[in-house]
């Protein structure tokens, strides 16, 4: 639901980069979004398409790379795949897991002209 704010923030990062790097058009925006980050990809695309109109990013495509969730079980200390916060450790059944990966919301790179 807050994807509009995220889309606005993405556009802001692009405009900051445009001032530094002197480009006039963005062809593609590369994002890394963790599986556990509170982001609906389709919603983000929808809002990005709305906010990019009449900006240097109006032609830009969003390329979203999903980072899978990963954590270490606090009880058995095994590294496990985590696809949701309510997941129990598949080895020992413990719910206490320290997340090590999958909460990212990053802009990696831009393809520009």
């Amino acid at each position: 639901m807050h994807e509009l704010s995220l889309a606005e923030n993405i556009l802001q990062l692009i405009e900051d980069a445009a001032q530094q790097q002197h480009f006039t058009q963005v062809e593609a925006v590369w994002l890394e979004i963790g599986q556990l980050a509170c982001v609906e990809h389709e919603s983000l695309r929808f809002f990005f398409n709305s906010v990019k109109k009449d900006t240097i990013a109006q032609e830009a495509k969003l390329e979203i790379i999903t980072i899978t969730g990963q954590g270490i079980c606090d009880r058995c200390h095994q590294t496990i795949a985590v696809n949701s916060y309510d997941m129990a450790c598949p080895r020992c059944g413990g719910y206490a897991v320290t997340i090590t990966q999958g909460e990212e919301m990053r802009m990696n790179a831009l393809e520009v002209k």
């Binding site: 923030n9 980069a17 062809e27 919301m105 802009m107 393809e111």
Partner: peptide, 26 residues
């Protein structure tokens, strides 16, 4: 990370590394 996924990159375009959190400003 994504071999082959940048097929649409043409000679006129260039890649710029950003590496920033989307919520960096917040």
């Amino acid at each position: 990370k994504n071999p082959g996924r940048r097929d649409h990159q043409t000679s006129e375009t260039r890649m710029i590394k950003i590496e920033r959190d989307i919520l960096a400003e917040n």
